[in-house]
Amino acid sequence: MSNTFTETDILRYLYGETTPAENKAIAEELKKNINLRSYYDRMVETQKELEKVFEEPDPTSVNIILEYSQATHHDSLEHH
């Protein structure tokens, strides 16, 4: 396998979409390629910032969905 990895390969690596063989090769490459390592570190840092964004729906929204499901479930039973 070629050890010339691109920034796109690093992205796939960052998001766990590389094969075990690629993981091993990229980890080795990151030890010796300063530029690639620098890019990887910047992306990890950016990803950590993104992980701080977290939202959850209002419980009312979930209840509305569940109530709709239960109501249509009963309806479907009545029609059978």
């Binding site: 964004v53 977290f54 939202e55 959850e56 729906p57 209002d58 009312t60 929204s61 979930v62 969905i65 569940l66 499901s69």
Partner: peptide, 27 residues
């Protein structure tokens, strides 16, 4: 269904919210 929603609600809601950028519309 409740389990499925609980399992995925935050990732789905966060994604919708980031797309529309409005909490009420996202809800």
């Amino acid at each position: 269904l409740e389990m499925l929603i609980k399992r995925h609600k935050n990732k789905v809601f966060t994604s919708i919210y980031l797309i529309v950028q409005d909490r009420y519309i996202a809800e």
